[in-house]
């Protein structure tokens, strides 16, 4: 009796394990932390898990951390799909980390959102501009920022934060400073000079972490910062009086981009998740909650959401885009010079 019971239990356990194994197809998705992770975990991932009977592990990290992680795991990747900023994504493609996009994914989005020779897809449009505390600006009677050079105004001394050069917002800042002072992505020297002489004295800290940035805004430590539209949207949703200005010289387009990773387990599932990320349903979620403009042409947004995000190709064209091939090639050199001349 005892023995047969034991046998039954063992069989049941084995059957359970087998069922578990077949149900538990797993996919690791690497993406940003903060509000992005929140939206992924609550509004995006659960529906996908239910529909496909799989499990998604979300791996948090900023673009450069995740890029470094995938570079380290080259050959035995655990990450199936990665979401990075457009610049690091182009770098990931040139490092051979991304597989070619499925045709359906490539054809669903605006051509501008297809990156790295059909290897990565933009999942949302945002832009880099000047974020400012509207309440403090009103109290002190400051006009809203209108130009990148407003960062050099003496009244903001030690009240500005700019993300570091390790961060896409920081790269955008330097590139814009170069462009409006006669340089270009290939000739960054004028930008470094302006940063060093005119902007640096105003900067309280070079801060890449979104968590610390919001803390500094909330404590009133900083009044304005170079930051992204999606980060500002998240702060606004939390009820903080923050707005983002598009400088007259142009705000810089910043895409979040996804790709399926080479040599990862579950390639079919990875492609499916990538397609899900650019499906109109998910695009609307990110437009509503993250302030990201949809890259899928078929996305229909309610008017109150459409007014707040980059919507449609014309609006995207009004933003400035960097030549990431040139920038990435020179990025190590930019970093070196930035650390020595600016970040002091």
């Amino acid at each position: 009796m005892m023995r047969s019971l034991l046998g039954l239990l063992t069989a049941a356990a084995a059957a359970l394990c087998a069922a578990q194994a077949s149900a538990e197809q797993r996919l690791t998705v690497a993406g940003y932390g903060g509000s992005y992770e929140q939206i992924m975990r609550t509004s995006v991932i659960p529906a996908f898990e239910r529909e496909n009977d799989v499990r998604i592990d979300y791996l948090t990290g900023n673009s450069s951390d995740n890029l470094a992680r995938m570079q380290a795991q080259r050959g035995h990747q655990t990450v199936g799909v990665a979401v990075l900023d457009d610049g690091p994504m182009v770098q990931a493609v040139s490092l051979g980390l991304c597989r070619t996009l499925p045709d359906a994914v490539r054809d669903a989005v605006y051509p501008i959102a297809v990156l790295g020779d059909d290897h990565a897809v933009g999942t949302g449009f945002g832009f880099t501009g000047i974020a400012y505390n509207t309440k403090l600006f009103k109290e002190r009677g400051f006009p809203a920022p209108t130009s990148w050079m407003d960062l050099a105004k003496p009244e903001y001394r030690q009240r500005i934060a700019i993300p570091g050069i390790d961060n896409t917002y920081g790269v955008h800042t330097l590139a814009m400073m170069a462009r409006i002072h006669g340089g270009s992505d290939a000739d960054i020297a004028p930008g470094l000079k302006v940063m060093r002489q005119q902007i640096n004295p105003n900067v309280l800290a070079y801060e890449s972490s979104p968590g610390k940035m919001s803390e500094m805004f909330q404590s009133g430590e900083i009044w304005l910062a170079v930051w992204g539209s999606s980060r500002v949207a998240a702060m606004q949703q939390a009820g903080f009086p923050l707005a983002i200005a598009r400088p007259k010289e142009g705000a810089v387009v910043l895409m979040t981009a996804g790709c399926a990773i080479t040599d990862s387990p579950e390639p079919a599932l990875a492609d499916k998740f990538l397609a899900y990320l650019v499906s109109p349903k998910v695009q609307e979620i990110f437009a509503t909650q993250y302030g990201a403009g949809p890259t899928n042409r078929a996305t229909k947004l309610p008017p109150e959401v459409a007014g707040r995000v980059i919507y449609g190709e014309d609006q995207v064209r009004s933003l400035i885009g960097l030549d990431w091939d040139v920038v990435n090639r020179n990025r190590a050199d930019w970093t070196r010079q930035w650390q020595r001349q600016v970040e002091r």
């Binding site: 450069s64 951390d65 890029l67 470094a68 570079q71 570091g164 390790d166 800290a205 070079y206 801060e207 890449s208 610390k212 990025r331 190590a332 970093t335 650390q339 970040e343 002091r344």
Partner: peptide, 24 residues
């Protein structure tokens, strides 16, 4: 890294930067 910020570089934060940001 947190209390000193990026301007005040120490050897450990430079190491972190080379590994995770420049990938060198």
């Amino acid at each position: 890294a947190m209390l000193g910020g990026k301007r005040l570089k120490v050897v450990s934060s430079m190491t972190y930067n080379e590994f995770l940001n420049t990938l060198n």
